[in-house]
Amino acid sequence: MRFTKDHEWVALEGDVATIGITAFAAEQLGDVVFVETPEVGKVVKAGDAFAVVESVKAASDVYAPISGEVVEGNTILGDAPETVNADPENGGWFARIKISDPAQYDALMDRPAYEAFLATQ
């Protein structure tokens, strides 16, 4: 699993990346009440806002950590957005992207690097 400074995580299997927000981000947001996942077929560039997560008090963009085409959104989050808080780095995933540039994945932080980054926050 790799991480971004915007507190997204990416897990890569073959050329499909599963993307979500980290436990730190979920804790910072508080209770998630609504999630908008991207539509299947949407082509996103790394750094694009591609999903939205909402708490009681605010809506926050989620940025695509990696470029590619969306192949699946996590439909569970429509009825159970609280899954993002309960299981952020697994069942609370947002979308799956068929990636176009594996080098982007390699450039992201690994867990020790992300944890070191968190310590500076």
Partner: peptide, 12 residues
């Protein structure tokens, strides 16, 4: 304070 450890939902 915008929230305490319980969070906005529980506080509300």
């Amino acid at each position: 304070p915008v929230q305490y450890p319980d969070g906005v939902m529980k506080e509300h």
